[in-house]
Amino acid sequence: MSRAAIRVPAHEPLVQLWRDGMVESVHHGSVVVLRRDGTTLFQAGDPDAAFYPRSAAKPLQAVAMTRLGLDLPPELLALAAASHSGEEFHLAGAAKILDLAGLGEAQLRNPEDLPFDPVERDLWVASGRTARKLAHNCSGKHAAMLVTSHRLGWSLVDYLDPGHPLQRAIADTFEELSGESVARVATDGCGAPLFSFSLRGLATAAGRIAAATGTTAESRVAQAIRRHPEMLGGSRRDVTRLITAVPGLIAKDGFESVQVAALPDGTAIAIKIADGTDRARPPALAAALALCGVDPDVLAPFAGTAGPDGLRVTGALAEGLRPVPEARPA
């Protein structure tokens, strides 16, 4: 099994910001689009360098826990794979997951936080509420980790330790689905282990989850995301709107401007914007989905600005398919 190389990624320009006929800012990044058979339809930048997938890896974590016996209804399984906005239904869902095993908010090991969504956060502060563990955008995942560990008789106080049997099983699932060995183990912002691999590996894993059928853990997670995108993100989140707009799509965003998406036939995309800001992520993803045959009219709300000023996809991603060895006919 290969391991992604740890190096400074050779990112390329993907998105430009134009103002009055001149480029004002440029967002570099890397992107890979894989066909259903795993061959490369398109790539730009350095999709084989090791990187941190951040929360874009949460569907993989949800698959691992479901394989271990976590049995949640679809709306709560989507929340287990979520970076939620902190709306009241998200907090209630995370509490419900904990209650399935008789656990409580105090047992969560993620930090206390305010809601992720700016509107929810402002309302929260205006009403005098303070940070809570349930309000953290990762509380659904952490609640699921606790319930999984509880049901298997594993320790709860150290469920975030990379050597904990839960985290070892998650790492094994990452490697199986991505086809790569973990390049490096770090700590995510929520305290959970963060497994590094390549954009190509992340896209490979997402394609396998999206194309899964039957009652497999992969299929259950994919169906939960499709049926309950509001649990995965929130009422005002672009990832929720995109899943709703594109039939059969699964998608997950992550901090530092990571994005993964996959269609039900297994065609998959993974994107990393180099500067870590979110402005360029939606138009880059829309351009990549267009290469996969998704209707441009459906993608228009995510594709940047139509006029002469604003965000424009640039370079190879704007030009369309760029030949790569895997894409050439036999």
Rank of each mutant, 00 (worst) to 15 (best):
T130V: 15
R132T: 02
L17W: 15
V26Q: 13
E180P: 04
A274Y: 15
S198H: 09
L68W: 00
A318M: 11
Y159V: 15
A183I: 09
R19G: 02
V185N: 04
D122F: 10
K272H: 02
R121Q: 14
H136I: 05
R184I: 06
G304D: 06
R208K: 14
L134C: 11
A287K: 10
L263C: 03
Q107S: 07
A78W: 12
A261S: 14
T187L: 14
G29L: 13
K96M: 05
R36Y: 00
S25R: 15
E319F: 08
H150S: 10
A143R: 01
H164D: 03
T40M: 14
V260G: 08
V119C: 07
D117R: 05
S2A: 13
P193E: 13
M65V: 01
V125Q: 14
G234K: 14
A101D: 03
P165D: 03
A5Y: 09
P111D: 06
C138R: 10
F302V: 04
R220K: 13
V182Y: 01
A49W: 04
E176I: 06
R237P: 00
A251D: 09
I273D: 07
G38N: 11
D122I: 06
A245F: 08
L156G: 00
V33I: 14
I170D: 04
G104V: 05
H27S: 08
E326I: 01
T204R: 15
R200C: 01
S181E: 12
M145R: 04
V31T: 09
P115A: 06
T277Q: 15
D71W: 05
G86C: 13
G310W: 11
V157F: 12
P282A: 08
D113Y: 02
L249F: 00
G254L: 03
D238W: 15
A288P: 06
D295Q: 08
R109D: 10
D265M: 10
G254P: 02
L242N: 04
A286Y: 06
L103N: 00
A10H: 13
L134Y: 13
D37Q: 08
S127Y: 09
R67L: 04
L72V: 00
A222M: 03
R237K: 12
A5F: 12
L285T: 05
A286E: 03
S219R: 01
S178G: 12
I97N: 07
P13N: 10
C138S: 14
L14Y: 12
R3S: 03
L70E: 08
A78V: 01
M1G: 10
Q16V: 10
H150M: 10
V258Y: 07
H164E: 08
K252T: 00
R168P: 05
A57G: 15
A169T: 01
A274T: 04
L311G: 03
R281S: 11
R312H: 15
S181T: 09
G234F: 11
A4P: 08
S196I: 01
S25I: 03
P308F: 11
S85M: 09
G320V: 00
G191E: 10
H27G: 05
T148M: 08
V33Q: 09
A286S: 12
T213P: 00
